[in-house]
Design a protein around this nucleic acid. Sequence first.
RNA 1: CGGGGCGUGGCGCAGCCUGGUAGCGCACCUGCUUUGGGAGCAGGGGGUCGGAGGUUCAAAUCCUCUCGCCCCGACCA
Length: 434
Amino acid sequence: MRLSEYFLPTLKETPAEAQIVSHRLMLRAGMIRQASAGIYSWLPLGFLVLKKIERIVREEQDAAGCQEMLMPTIQPAELWRESGRYDDYGKEMLRIRDRHERDLLFGPTNEELITEIFRASVKSYRALPKLLYHIQWKFRDEVRPRFGVMRGREFLMKDSYSFDIDFESAKRSYNKMFIAYLRTFHRMGLKAIPMQAESGPIGGDMSHEFAILAETGETGVFCHRDLLGFEVPGDDLDYGSDLQPIVDKWTSLYAATDDKHDTAREPELGEALVKARGIEVGHIFYFGAKYSKPMGAFVTGPDGAEVAVEMGSYGIGVSRLVGAIIEASHDEAGIIWPEPVAPFAYGVINLKADDPTCTDVCEKFYRALGSDALYDDRDERAGVKFADMDLVGLPWQIVVGPRGVKNGTVELKSRKTGESEEMSIDSALNRVTG
RNA sequence: CGGGGCGUGGCGCAGCCUGGUAGCGCACCUGCUUUGGGAGCAGGGGGUCGGAGGUUCAAAUCCUCUCGCCCCGACCA
């Protein structure tokens, strides 16, 4: 993309309403624009990042055997009356009435709808297990939205739902999602800690919150040091195999958020205790027949008896992750994108746009890199270009200036380390396209 | 939902207390000079001061109501 043509409204100054760093940087880097409290438009750059994150989430869900679908944002109130949540959910649920005076709502989550879909067509245990997910906008009318996209009212969430015939099978589904989450966050360059969370109505330990470590995170994380070094299952993972040992390993050590932290356990952890800040980016839980029973999602078991299906749900805050990644990866100058989620891998900086030689070299890189590059071809001063490129935070900057070009060289600079390497044009081309 | 704060060109702010018809920096447009880390000079465009009532000869400024946004606390992907 040529910056001269790109819609990238960067700001030198920070809008007054933005308090935390990710919000400030997202506004300054021209990623988002607030439409209303907790509701944002995603501008081209922000949207690219959102899509990259979404893709990683999707790939990992698919790999775990979860099937993608799409449910609507607007749901009928009737289903929520069946589960009893229409009254329980309170003011956080945005209620809507259509022209026929029918009660509708903007979905804050989809347990009811998916359960309805399931019950309508699945009648036998033979069709189980099933894992379904969608990535859709949610609306929760938070009393106090804040922190930009980190706690918006409208947000993009990946929510998966599992259906199993019994607890043992439900546990297998749970484990698949547990591991898919580890892999998902890992691929985004994040260190996510699974922490035991409030157990659902069924009890047990089948609920985990995934928090990523970030200095500016809002929740305190207390965990065993070794948890940070645990290896995340690689691409060779077979989801059909027994995943329990992996989950057992990851849940064997102490990990809690501040509100669940037990200070009495600190002495036994001793030196191994890590106190850090974190941001919740995922939450998985098993809730048995909580919805299937009242909503009549029954299947016939092998013995001919009807049983309510065992369910679980698994959420990832996709739009929140954009902010969370920035919280975890930035400096004074701006964002530092981990490569897998970067809107562009390379920023080509033409330091002298009116110098034909510089421009020729830049065009060469731009042609070779295609959609991987954001090419600053603007007629601006070098300082402006460096500042904007640092702010936007692309992992690699290819700096093309008259000084180097005269000797046939360009600079390849890492946004993260700030290290710059001067090399010949050809070897630079080989490096970035290789 | 309780407590606090703020609404003045795209962004950051001053002016309000003590009413007299709107200003600064950045950004934008034109020209010249500049050109490896947010340039200089000159010229220029853009705001019915969140909205509605009221007081007054006169309201950004005082009064009333209202809408929006932000912060602190309780809740959440």
